[in-house]
Every structure is written in structure tokens, then in C-alpha cells.
Design a protein around this nucleic acid. Sequence first.
DNA 1: GTGAAAGCGCTAACAA
DNA 2: TTGTTAGCGCTTTCAC
Lengths: 328, 328
Amino acid sequence: MADIARLAGVSTSTVSRALSHSPLVNQETRDRILDLARSLNYTINIGAQNLRLQQNRTVAVVIPIDQSSRQQLSDPFFLSMLGSLADALSEQGFDTLVSRVDADRVDAASAPFDGGRAIGVILIGQGRHHDQLNKMAARGVPFVVWGAQLPQQLYTTVGGDNVTGGRLATERLLAQGRRRIAFLGDTTLPEVEQRYRGHVQALAAHGIAPDPQLQVAVSFLPESGGQAVAELARRGVDYDAMFASSDLLAMKAIHAMRAQGRDVPADVAVVGYDDIELSGYFHPPLTTIGQPRDVAARALVDALLVLVDGRSAPSVKLPTELIARASA
Amino acid sequence: MADIARLAGVSTSTVSRALSHSPLVNQETRDRILDLARSLNYTINIGAQNLRLQQNRTVAVVIPIDQSSRQQLSDPFFLSMLGSLADALSEQGFDTLVSRVDADRVDAASAPFDGGRAIGVILIGQGRHHDQLNKMAARGVPFVVWGAQLPQQLYTTVGGDNVTGGRLATERLLAQGRRRIAFLGDTTLPEVEQRYRGHVQALAAHGIAPDPQLQVAVSFLPESGGQAVAELARRGVDYDAMFASSDLLAMKAIHAMRAQGRDVPADVAVVGYDDIELSGYFHPPLTTIGQPRDVAARALVDALLVLVDGRSAPSVKLPTELIARASA
DNA sequence: GTGAAAGCGCTAACAA
DNA sequence: TTGTTAGCGCTTTCAC
């Protein structure tokens, strides 16, 4: 900026004003400065501007990962949510800073905010540490979580209606005459727990008591789908249907069942969750519960901006719908 | 920092030194300051620190998107590359700033660097605008591209060995006695063009001339796979194999062929490209060309850091391998 | 319509 | 071992 000022024979104040299109500066001077800036490929230093203006157009998007499994983030649903968030944020003129945190230390997600790098944080996935999030909220960190609404929650969540989702999935299977429905999912995660609750509700409505033998507590590990099917086989338990708490899990399980010579949907009808892009192209095309990423992303961003504004943002429960395809 | 200084009864310099664990400051003073900082939930303002230090630990990861189709970024390969990059960068202590640019204006990718937000840029995908990238390089922007190595290239690329990849895929199909191999891909993209070149080489080695009727110039659009299969049907052209330039495309095409009653691999053997996670769980499990994301991500980051260091970084061609599964 | 000066939060040379 | 001071690149009040 000093260079431009010198070349234009004005002060840096004038350059600053010209670059911000201030009407205070003479039209002609302004044009000269803008031309100069362009020809020098000059761009304003955003860090310095932010510092001076005490503002910031950056939002941190943080993904908790299970350190124990050291797994790369790979669930297409989360990845695609990240894409949608980047879109929604840039639509609103915000930059997106991506980072991961250990799922056991989700409170570390506030780092970009604490360090003044971001005006707020969007957490994709809530993990098991409700308490850490509550503390973070108490500390005044503006953040929004993609996840389930929980009792005594001091922070804002945006999430699908997991109970209804679980119910819809199970009802679909029941409607097809299936009665022995395996449930695959890690119910220590609030979202999955709610889906399981919906599942049990639907069973109850049909007078069926949930059979613990049919519930497999897989975590979201690489080989989880295959392991779950193996576990069911080991238990020697009979099942004619399966509700998997993610499409990825469902696909892996179907793959494993196929290796056992079981046909989907003839032998086992399967419903997944998330409606990732590939679900429709899978064989058989996967019946699943839709969670619209772009709507979710916009809701997350909107809620965060409200928080940043100092107002309080209510948690949002987005409607879910059954996407009926061939697998069930 | 001023608050802490006041409370600790020292100057901000001392606080600054204490926070950076400088040995210059008295052990006891340092502990007092660090305790104070912790109890106040104080974190250094990175923007100010960067400004003062003229440094920066942020790298921009930019994804070109086809504005015409306004499609959400959805190819799992790119998304998963983004994940691997975020991992590789944070391993090296860098933050990741994500943004998109119009594929027709890839030179806009330099914005985060120009604005001092990032020390360099990693571009996932090269697009069609070699010239814009060359100009960007001439301007001195430190950036690395995931893509194909081209003649007269002033910038650094890291990419798979696409020609070999194309050759391996086609040889696999030829080895199974297939002779009428459809090629699906947008050959205006350098990477795809190179894969096509490898394809033609393999055909030539078997004395087969490429049949233009078998080449379908799909772009990476949502319905591209289905459209391509429809197009082949419209042309009334016979084929007993298919080489798709991405796994996503392959899966969509297989889905469409199945709807036509054609069996994979019995009627049509299919080879994809990328080896995305779901390829192994697809039905039939997809034979494909592996492009290791984590290795690629590390290579991209390493190359960028060399550039940022002011040195020149050679382009890298990573080995590709055939992942043999059931689809071919 | 323009410039001088102060200050955003931080660090480092220099002095004590 | 610590403090004083200047300055990173920018914006804005105040004065002219």
C-alpha cells in the first residue's frame, strides 16, 4: 500500500480510501490508484485488515476423528457435508478453515476461534462428549454442531430427525413382512442412539420386542460392516432384514452378506441411512433415509451467524424422509 | 496480553516471551504468566502474530468446479483427496483453508495467497486452463496442482501416471479376450486425455485400431454415466468391455447397463479409475486403477513447501497400479 | 479532498 | 531478567 501511495503521489490513507471505494476520494485520484493497484497485482492484506477492523470472515469447520482407529476421515456423508458447508459459507462471503480434532477432545475444536482465526466453529458430528461441548458453550465459544438434540444441552445443534428416521426405516422393513431386523450401529453416539430408539418404537407398534441378539454395536471403523455380519453369523442368529445406521455401513454389510451367499433383498432386506450419492447406483439400489446436505449446511451456517451476532439460536431438527429403492 | 501483563505485574514483552517459552524469562515469572493465561482462557491472536512475524501457517486447498453445471463437488475421489490433504497439512502444522473456484477462472485460486491468507495453494484438479496456471506461476504464486504433467508447464504438478494407468486398465480387458472396449471420459481434461492415450497404446499393442464410435466424451456431470450408456445404445454400437475414467462414472454406467439387462462382467467387463473406498464393496467389486490419496497428499504438501521455500519443485508422477476385482 | 497520527495484538532489537 | 520502543499492513478520526 505504501508503494502504491508513493507511485500515485498520495498518502496511504488515500490509497486505503480509494481501495474501499470511498466516495470521499476524488474520482480521478481513485481511478489512478485502482489502476495502479491492478497493474501491481496488489491485493489487500486480509490479516492486517482484520486486525485493524477487528473483524473476520472465516468460519472453522471441524471434524472429530476417532484417534484410537487413527482412521482417515472417509465416510462420504461427512465429506460431502464438508463440501456443502464450504459452498454455503462462501455463498455468505465466508472462508472455510478445515481441521480435525480427536473425538475424545472435541473441546479442542474451539482453537480456531480462541486464536482469533475464525468467528465461530461448525462441528460435523457430536461424538460422545456432550459435557465438553456444554463447557465450550459456557465459555462463550460460538459454535454449532451437526448432531442430535440432547437434554440439558447448552449449545445449538442442527440435525436430522433421527427418531423418525429410525422409525421410518423400520416401518419399511416391517411393511415388507420382515420381523427379524438386525440393527447395526454404535449406539454410544447420540444420533445412532436416537435412530435405535425410533427403531424400537416401530417394533413396539407392531408388538415386537427388540432382540438384543440382533443388535450389533459396530463403531464406524473401516471394516465395521463386514465385522458386523460376521458377528451375527457367529451368534448364529437369524435375520431377514437389516437397518444400518449409515449407507457406508449398509454397503459394506451387503457386500459381506453377498459373500455368504445371502441375497439382498430376497433373503435380507436392507435400509441404510444418509442417502449418499452412490446409494442410488449401488446394487441393489439402497433404500435409505435421506438427510439433505445442502439444507443442513445452510441451516448450520445460518444458526452460527445468529450466534456470532450475539443472539441465541434454537436447535434445528430437519425432516427426514424415506428414499425407497430396491434393497428394501 | 495486556490484561495478563497487568495482572502479573510485568510488561507485555515478558508475557510474550513467557508464552513462547523463551528461556530468557524467569522460571517462576513464566509459570505465573502461563497459569494466568490458562485461567483466563487466553490464546494468542494468530492474525496479529502472523502480521508481526510475517509468517503464516495456512495453506489454501482449492477445488475448481464447473460453473456451467453448478454442480456441487461430489466426486468421492476429490473429496477424499481433500480429507487426506487436511491430514497431511495438519501433520506438518499447517491449517487448511478450503475454497472453490470457477473451473474457467482457475487463476482466481491465487486469491488466498494474494491476500496474505495462505502461504501457498494446492489445486485439486487442473481443469482445461493450462495457460491460466502458467500465468499464475509466472506471477510468482506458490502453488501445486494435482493433475497431469504437460509440455511447456511452468508450474509443479503431482499426479498419477495416467498413461500407464490407461494402459493397465485396457490390458486387463484385452487379457480377458475383450476387444470392443468403450471408453468413457472427458478427454478435454489433461488427465483423462492421458488415460485415453494409454488406452490407445494398449489397443495398438494388440493391433487394434481405436473405434471412435466407442469413445463417449462425457463430462463429469451428475448423470454422465447413465447418459454415456444411453449414448452407446443410441449409436447402436457393440461393446463387450468398458474403461471409465473414474470409479464414480463406472458405477453409474454399471447401474445403467444393469437396467438394460446387461451383466457385468459377463456381458461387459468394466474397469474404473481412482479406487475410491466404496469400489471394493460395489457389486460387482470394481476393478480399477489405484491412486493412493495419502501418498499423493503428502507429495503435494511436500512440493508446495519446497516452493514456498523459494526452491523449485519438480513435478511428480506417482506410480499407479491395477486393483484387480470382479468387474473385470 | 487529503494527510498526519494513532492503534488493532503481537514480537524483537536494544537498553538497562 | 526485564522493560521500552518501534513496527508488521491496515483504517479512521481529526485537522487542515
